[in-house]
Design a protein around this nucleic acid. Structure first.
Lengths: 357, 357
DNA sequence: CTGAAAGCGCTAACAC
DNA sequence: GTGTTAGCGCTTTCAG
């Protein structure tokens, strides 16, 4: 028969089992110093009353909530939700709960109240999984100064006194552009993300650096700024073709823009990869099934999430107190180049000849 | 100067302000019965010490946590994350916090521990935002029987004694197929989602019903089951063309499969929409920029999320107790047909002639 | 208007 | 082994 009245307390269990609350506490915490018979009797009562210890009361007395605060932004995009998914399962696995806050705007100033809510709920640690846009990093750093709680940042520029876990965007950019060069492309343009995003700047800098290292002059009109969206991919491509007519390959800062770029190019009589090679960034599910399939840089966001959770929990469980300065960790995860058809120039040339015949 | 020691308590504030903790409590709760001078003095101390009342202690004494438990699954897909995003902002707006659990598997049996964790943390209500797959609904219903907490289900079959907020999948399916008929298509096939999903069955049933109502015989080989993924869209299309050679239009149960279907058709020399019309379901961002742009059914998941949150908070704040049987709410949100090029047969015929000339 | 006392559900520290 | 006492940080009586 089910217990349908309100949640039962340790007192009620104690009463029903004829022991003190302390003994019940010992049983539910699996302490050794309880006689087998007592334990059994208490356990039976617990099962019968469907008693569940109150995590709230425990948090109060233990000054530990076994809860992590997680801040995200842009959940409607695929990247942030994949990260959150990774965080959620890692947190779960570690036996913690997850208190979620979503920032409605990337560079919002509602950072204070978020920290306050977390503190007031006694979270044991905070994971800041908001992309670095504009100077939101500065605000967070500011706001986090009087937070005496372990804090890890995701996808943010590594810096002193701050623990960061991130994919190596710069390396990814280098891999993409080097690959295009190896394929024999000579005039490699770039469609960047919004340049107030740190990730976008990293990818763009990598593009410039690789070209420079290979003795290729980079001019301003060789790149166009997009905003990550499909529609901006079309606009940017149009503009780039215009201001850089010689372009024979484009490193596009994310897959969505790359996909719409390909679409636009094909509709305008440019073949991919024969006329123009394309490399994207992210490896979204669509990329593999596009025509032509998109060469791209794969970010292992699951690993990033796991590492961040592991790191913060290690800090928590080591009993770190803000008083001692902590040694911040910087973990950079390398991305992977996934080669598909959209960038295969060498082979593309042959296909071209065959088709033309 | 910043306060760098550990969190301050109401006691410390009281001491520093020379009043009792009770008075401090009155100030932070904005009770009227405090003299202006006292209030001011206390407020100053609060600001100076950066005092934040402990939500944990409050939850304990008030037996209300101002926290909602939310369960999702499949966060790596775009649909669930959009819903979660809507939930998160609605919850925030209502002044609640959000405790998140992700089910690793749609038909997992780890439901019990999730409820237990929520109960133990004294959540005021639970939002079950996991798609109905297989008989997971039954398990949840089972597990929720002894949960004396307001509970709302998202995207689930409406039923007795359960509050449900959902998009009208059946209506969406009808809109899609009716639209294709109006466009003059005669042989409308269907690529469904996995049929252990309730949503997939709803959409499929609608397809059948509309055809039947219009005197069209539906045979088994007129539909193929996919699994929502891009790759399954290709497989399913191949199979459908094979077993239903006359097919001149396809209602595809989600946009991802629709996109890869279009891709496959075009690569195999079938023009969309001239030879085959396509309608999808979901309206993902890509659909608008595809070639041809995809006609689809738009689900307003944000509205669904908002309604669910509003409903549960209303129940909570009405002081509902499980003892009284509650009158469950069923809210069905209608979807919208978004017409783009992929389904325009009437116009398509003219274009065809023009092109051929 | 303000304070003292009691207690939310649990556990730590000590007694027995 | 088990019970008693005290108290986590706050709010709710109820006096004054």
């Amino acid at each position: 028969m089910r217990q349908k009245t309100s949640r039962s307390t340790i007192k009620e269990v104690a009463l029903a089992a004829g022991v003190s609350t302390q003994t019940v506490s010992r049983v539910i915490n699996e302490r050794p110093d309880v006689s087998p018979e007592t334990r059994k009797r208490v356990q039976e009562v617990i099962d019968q009353l469907a008693y569940r210890p109150s995590a709230v009361a425990r948090s109060l007395i233990r000054q530990r909530s076994h809860t992590l605060g997680v801040v995200t932004a842009g959940l409607k995009y695929i990247g942030p939700s994949r990260i959150l998914s990774g965080i959620a399962s890692a947190v779960e696995e570690a036996g913690y709960s997850l208190l979620l806050k979503e920032l409605s705007d990337f560079d919002t100033k509602e950072i204070e109240p978020i920290f306050e809510a977390f503190i007031s709920r006694h979270v044991d640690g905070i994971i800041w999984a908001v992309p670095e846009v504009g100077d939101n990093r500065t605000w967070v750093k500011e706001a986090s100064l009087d937070v005496e709680i372990p804090l890890v940042y995701l996808t943010m520029q590594a810096q002193e006194n701050i623990s960061v876990v991130s994919v190596d965007n710069y390396l990814g950019g280098k891999m993409a552009v080097s690959h295009l060069l190896e394929q024999g492309f000579k005039h490699i343009g770039h469609i960047s993300g919004p340049l107030d995003w740190w990730e976008a700047r990293q990818r763009m800098t990598a593009w410039k650096d690789v070209l420079n290292e290979n003795g290729i002059k980079v001019k301003d009109e060789h790149s166009v700024e997009g905003d990550w969206s499909l529609s901006s991919g079309i606009e940017a491509t149009k503009k780039l073709l215009n201001q850089y007519p010689d372009v024979d390959a484009i490193f596009v800062a994310n897959d969505q823009m790359a996909l719409s770029a390909i679409q636009y190019l094909r509709q305008n009589g440019r073949r991919v990869p024969e006329d123009i090679g394309i490399v994207g960034f992210d490896d979204i599910p669509e990329s593999e099934f596009f025509f032509p399939p998109l060469t791209t840089i794969q970010q292992d966001q699951n690993t990033v999430a796991k590492l961040a959770v592991e790191d913060i929990i290690k800090t928590i469980e080591s009993g770190w107190h803000k008083l001692e300065p902590k040694e911040p960790q910087t973990i950079i995860v390398p991305p992977t180049l996934v080669v598909r058809q959209s960038s295969l120039h060498l082979r593309g040339i042959h296909e071209k000849e065959v088709e033309i015949k």
